[in-house]
Nucleic acid binder design. Structure first.
Length: 276
DNA sequence: CAGTTCGCCTGGGGGC
DNA sequence: TGCCCCCAGGCGAACT
């Protein structure tokens, strides 16, 4: 599942390939990905738009076009492929195909069909776009301090992992990194926010920054690819301490085995010995 | 209002 | 081998 580091890697790759290309045509094979516009209007408005820039906000990918913003969320399995016309694609999962001015194609590929497109006129400020309004602070925002975090969580009755997954406090953390951050912080995912002290808040913030930064430098975790011939796998996979490690000996204490439970419907991995 | 559960999807895996 | 059922999960909607 693409989280902040994976989305960053996707954007870095797309920047090298599609920026300054013109959209010649668009084919939408699954209209439900379009959340705030119908297919016919979307196709008409996209034609002849130039892709000027690609930005990220939380887990959202923002394609800055001549006159519009196209905001893409990959959700679980969304991928972008940049391919030439010789590349064979399983069109069953090619939900959107952009014909580009360089004769190549940008394909939005999503087997589970959870990904979303929002389309807005650029006349609106990015921060005022409905889909982005609930996005909280980026991990490296100077306003993300221990004090900010402590004030946000101190009276809450929800479990700390549930809070980390919310996008309106810190943006960009998903299920993999939430588990990893809490393991490195020696805090149980089941602990209620109201029992987390300032010092622990400081640890969580520090580890959020370091884990996400390290993951970005390694290209992320989720396996994804940009053309059908060769998949690129993020190297952070090898650094995971708890995610998908249930039954394995904890690397930190070397005593307990990683436990897997369900927390609010999400698979949750942690060490009962290290994380209290 | 805060917190929890549901529903959207489909490939893959386990059980038989 | 084939069929059924369940699971994975981000996030908005609907619920308590």
């Amino acid at each position: 599942m693409p989280e902040l580091p994976e989305v960053t890697t996707v954007i870095n790759t797309l920047k090298k390939t599609i920026v300054l290309k013109r959209i010649v045509n668009v084919t939408i094979n699954y209209e439900k990905i379009l959340k705030n516009i119908n297919k016919k209007t979307f196709v008409t408005l996209c034609k002849n738009q130039i892709i000027f820039d690609i930005k990220r906000l939380g887990k959202n990918i923002i394609l800055v076009l001549s006159n519009y913003y196209l905001i893409v969320h990959l959700r679980m399995e969304g991928k972008f492929y940049y391919v030439d016309n010789k590349t064979k694609i399983n069109y069953k999962h090619a939900l959107a195909i952009f014909d580009l001015s360089d004769k190549n194609y940008l394909i939005f590929y999503d087997t589970r069909r959870f990904g979303t497109f929002y389309f807005y006129s650029k006349e609106k400020e990015i921060k005022n776009l409905t889909v982005l309004q609930k996005i909280g602070l980026e991990p490296w925002d100077k306003r993300l301090t221990t004090k900010y975090f402590y004030e946000k969580i101190k009276n809450r009755n929800i479990k700390i992992k549930t809070l980390l997954l919310r996008q309106d406090i810190i943006a960009g953390i998903g299920n993999i990194y939430a588990d990893e951050i809490l393991h490195k912080s020696n805090i149980s995912p089941l602990r209620s926010c109201k029992y987390i002290n300032k010092s622990e808040c400081s640890t969580i913030i520090k580890n959020t920054k370091s884990i996400l930064r390290n993951a970005i430098s390694l290209g992320g975790t989720t396996v994804f690819s940009y053309n059908s011939a060769n998949g690129i796998s993020g190297k952070f996979q090898q650094k995971l301490q708890v995610y998908n490690k249930s039954g394995k000996l904890c690397n930190n204490c070397n005593i307990a085995r990683i436990n897997k439970i369900k927390l609010n419907g999400r698979g949750t991995h942690y060490c009962e010995n290290c994380q209290r």
